[in-house]
Amino acid sequence: MSQNFTPNEMMTVAAARALTNEDVCFVGIGAPSAACNLARQTHAPDIVLIYESGTLETRPNVLPLSIGDGELCETALTTVSVPEMFRYWLQGGRITTGFLGGAQIDRYANLNTTVVGPYEKPNVRLPGGGGAPEIATSCGQIFITMAHAKRAFVEKIDFFTSLGHGQGGDSRKKLGVTTKGPTKVITDLCVMEPDEKTKELTVVSLHPGVTKEQVSAATGWQIKFAPGVGETPAPNETELKVLRELHARTKAAHGGNA
């Protein structure tokens, strides 16, 4: 069956739909930024977008390449210093939803963006955690967006950069963390949510045209499916139009291959 959208567009649209007009959102670069701005330009015009470079209530017309592009500051209500951002706004509990991604994720949505291989002698040294360790515990809830592949969805992550649901169950509570943690993992194949009790990620909807076998084959552990797993509604015309225009403006602004 041919579709008029790509798996990546489906992922971005599904993530955008999960956001509401009331959210105060801590945005990361890449897919999260596209999802948040798509939401703002469609169903959630009043969503508050905050980037860790200090920009509060920013309304960028093109997607930033870096977390501190001038576009973010020029279209923000105000810009604060980075210590203020992390102390007053993030730690202060003013963010409802944080977006994270990573190189590796496990069944409890713990993330690794630090190293592949042992920390002291890595096979691949990645950029590191940045804001993630505190975003993961200070925001009301966390959405995760990642491309679905076996090398990313692994049985055991090589480094615990940021806390998801720990070892499952009430792990977060035991660590003194009172926020919800990851409530949705949105990939280019499906949407997952943690099981209410065990906190293990469970597929709740498959994107149009995707099979359970495909998801299982792209996951490094025996992935569970919710009873009556549904189909993610396909992107509608407006969503695709707004998203594609956003990417086209971004590409033009960044001089080529955005």
């Binding site: 730690q91 713990n110 615990f160 660590l175």
Partner: peptide
């Protein structure tokens, strides 16, 4: 002093 690093592995290394 801050509320941080909970459940994160950096304190180990």
């Amino acid at each position: 002093v801050f509320r941080g690093y909970r459940g994160a592995e950096l304190p180990r290394v």
